[in-house]
Write a protein that binds this DNA or RNA. Structure first.
Length: 714
DNA sequence: GCGGATCAC
DNA sequence: TATGGTGATCCGC
């Protein structure tokens, strides 16, 4: 174990710079050769110099820690051990294995999208990003050691034939949104962590299903598929299914995340909800795999001889003496396989910032004018969310990659570019002066604002019960639970600057803010699902009253009578769900037509063209139950289960048929026709090609796959 | 409240 | 030629 003492600088640096072969697709490559190339390309650079410096700092921390450790007496340790045991038994009491948490992420998301749109890329090593920075790479490229967060020019040295595709975030965002609509179906409160990753709580979904009559269950399966296909219908994203990696399923968030990383070739990894299974799983787990334990923590723990979670529990008393309370409590939870069992609702943002990397900027005038630009941008973003904050922070990184932040808190909140700049300018000037007579040689500048106050400009933005409750009614211009940030403007600016071709990997904070409230729609929903009569017995108005608060896109005070069409995204002003449904139907059939026209090159054929349109149209039946259900989460799903349960068995069957027919069109035709050459439908869960062209069968398989054991146990 | 550092994505 | 951007949190002042 390298613990800093006695190893060379270069060896130490390897821990920071070397290839990270954690990820999938990195097996069996020549690590030494790759590391040598990386080192050669880096050595002597300012970046490398800074890494070296940071590494030494970490080593000092470790030394300090080891020194502390040496002073711990046996007696102290025993006392600590007692405390650990006490806390352990308390935590053990709180263990909750009843939840079914799912973590999903996409496989090389951006790269997959690019390959989808440009099939030639499928067979060549490819990465998304720039010569300065790569966001992700495909599996061909990974064989060469090319990976995310690696600068493109180094990647090119590893793999000269590498094709670097500039990122197209609008596209990824669009695909992401389609995927999220599917997520919302299973958990309206799912939490997106980024464009390609999310946590879902399946517990309620499974519970509801359990109480549904068999026919509804099947129906729901169909409607689910129908939904995703309807989405695909709009933008050919049926292929999105291929983006999914097998999800991780476990009783809490930490475990689910680790499980999804297991990436078993043949399907999802599901950790059974028993203490034994959890503990067994945890023992062998390397600490680095746990979310929250990064490079530095790993290195510190390694220095103590801790590499796996079982080491963690063994050394817990020691850890409790060496680390802060929050840290060791966290470690203890990890070692017991405990973590959050419910997915937290997305909280209010606490800060907003904008920063940019550029070619060296040393002239004060240029620096100040850049600062002003950043303030303009930030103010623009603040305006979009109607935020004001009291603390302005300037961030600078010099050409040696040294980062500094300077902040000032005002007695009042600001939001305009002028006000922010007034503060940022002073902070910057001070830094310039501190450096003089040398110039400040910058490679990055950023401005952040925090300490937000509510719109009245006085009260701090803290969670009160009232604001929490109001959150549920919070409004969105789109009915999906997803919002986006920092889209075009940031990119445009980047182009303007033409600096270091920065290519962010992500859009940062996504604000999910699900539109459904726990206490509003859901309760009555469960009822509706368990009681066959409930839905029919509800009048249209009653239904509407359930739906409206969620579907509303109105601003403050506007009556909730606007629905957002999940197809064209137009706002439909009506209180009559039938009207709204008709709008969607017409949109859908329009989309079908467009798809037909455009499908020539896409899908090889569509012999049943007319038939399709007619099935789409005849299939429009309002569906109060699901309407209520899904409207609450996302208008995007209004179209999905529009089969009416109030129609009796025969009609149900008919609808099933029509659904299957509708289903077939967008994907099935695209896939099946083209797939008569290649494999048939591929299960998004186990990723195995299914030897069937019957979507009913396929659906059944997917569903079984997803819920297999869970359902069984329930 | 500030500033550095760590972490995730 | 060339190593990102956004947000959160923690710790030690």
């Amino acid at each position: 174990m390298e613990n800093g003492a006695g190893s060379t600088k270069e060896e130490n640096l390897l821990s920071r710079m070397a290839l990270n072969d954690n990820k999938a697709g990195m097996e069996g490559l020549d690590r030494d050769k790759i590391n040598r190339i990386i080192m050669e390309a880096s050595k002597g650079s300012r970046f490398y110099g800074n890494e070296l410096k940071k590494e030494q700092q970490v080593n000092q921390r470790i030394e300090k820690m080891m020194h502390q450790k040496a002073q711990i007496t046996e007696q102290l340790l025993q006392k600590a051990q007692a405390q650990v045991e006490k806390m352990t038994s308390e935590l053990e009491k709180s263990r909750d294995l009843s939840r079914v948490i799912v973590h999903v992420d996409m496989d090389a998301f951006y790269a997959a999208v690019e390959m989808r749109d440009c099939p030639e890329l499928k067979d060549t090593p490819m990465a998304v990003g720039s010569m300065s920075m790569l966001s992700t790479s495909n599996y061909h490229a990974r064989k060469y050691g090319v990976r995310a967060a690696m600068p493109g020019f180094i990647a090119k040295k590893l793999c000269p034939s590498l094709v670097i595709v500039p990122p197209n975030f609008d596209k990824y965002r669009a695909v992401s949104e389609e995927i999220r609509e599917i997520f919302a179906e299973y958990d309206p409160n799912f939490q997106p962590m980024s464009l390609d990753e999310a946590y879902l709580d399946f517990t309620d979904h499974l519970e509801q299903r359990q109480s549904w009559p068999e026919s509804s269950l099947r129906l729901y399966n169909k409607s689910n598929t129908k939904f995703s296909l309807a989405v695909s219908h709009l933008s050919k994203s049926a292929q999105n299914w291929y983006l999914f990696r097998p999800p991780g399923i476990a009783p809490n968030m930490m475990l689910a995340k680790v499980c999804s990383d297991k990436n078993k070739p043949n399907g999802q990894y599901r950790l059974p909800p028993t203490r034994e299974a959890v503990m067994d799983f945890i023992q062998k787990l390397p600490v680095r795999k746990v979310c929250g334990i990064g490079k530095v923590s790993e290195k510190m723990l390694n220095a103590l001889g801790i590499t796996t979670c079982s080491d963690l529990s063994r050394q817990m008393a020691l850890l409790s003496l060496l680390f802060s309370e929050t840290s060791w409590h966290h470690f203890l939870q990890i070692s017991l396989g405990l973590s959050s069992t419910h997915i937290p609702r997305h909280e209010e943002r606490k800060s907003m910032s904008t920063e940019r990397t550029f070619k060296e900027l040393s002239k004060p005038e240029e620096q100040l004018s850049l600062c002003r630009e950043l303030c303009d941008d930030l103010a623009e973003d603040l305006k979009k969310e109607a935020l004001k904050g009291k603390t302005v922070t300037l961030k600078i990184k010099n050409v040696n990659f040294e980062v500094k932040t300077r902040a000032q808190t005002l007695p009042y909140a600001v939001a305009t570019a002028e006000d922010i700049f007034a503060v940022a300018k002073d902070l910057l000037k001070t830094e310039i002066e501190n450096e003089s007579p040398q110039p400040l040689r910058l490679r990055l500048m950023g401005v952040r604002i925090s300490a937000f106050v509510s719109s009245d400009g006085k009260t701090p933005m803290q969670k009160s019960i009232i604001s929490f409750l109001q959150l549920g009614k919070r409004d969105h211009s789109r009915s999906s639970p997803i919002t986006h940030r920092k889209p075009e403007r940031a990119h445009a600016k980047r182009l303007e600057l033409q600096a270091a071709e920065p290519s962010p990997q992500d859009e940062g904070c996504e604000e999910p803010v699900p539109v459904v409230t726990p206490n509003n729609g859901t309760e009555s929903l469960k009822q509706a699902n368990t009681d066959d009569c409930t839905v029919q017995d509800l009048s249209e108005n009653e239904l509407a009253s359930h739906v409206q608060p969620h579907a509303s896109t109105s601003g403050c005070g506007t009556p909730a009578e606007t629905f957002t069409c999940p197809v064209c995204f137009a706002k439909v002003k009506t209180t009559d769900l039938n009207v709204f449904n008709r709008h969607i139907d017409s949109c859908l059939s329009d989309a079908a037509k467009r798809e037909d026209e455009a499908s020539g090159s896409e899908s090889d054929l569509d012999p049943e063209d007319d038939h399709r349109k007619s099935t789409v149209v005849t299939q429009k039946k309002e569906k109060p139950r699901d309407l209520k259900n899904e409207a609450s989460a996302s208008g995007g799903e209004l179209d999905l289960g529009r089969v009416s349960p109030q129609e009796g068995q025969q009609t149900l069957k008919n609808n099933l048929v029509s659904l299957i027919q509708v289903d077939k069109k967008p994907v099935a035709l695209q896939q099946q026709s083209s797939l008569s050459r290649s494999p048939l439908l591929t299960c998004p869960v186990c990723q195995r090609a299914q030897d069937t062209d019957d979507l009913a069968v396929f659906n059944h398989h997917v569903d079984l796959c997803l819920n297999q054991e869970v359902l069984h146990e329930l």
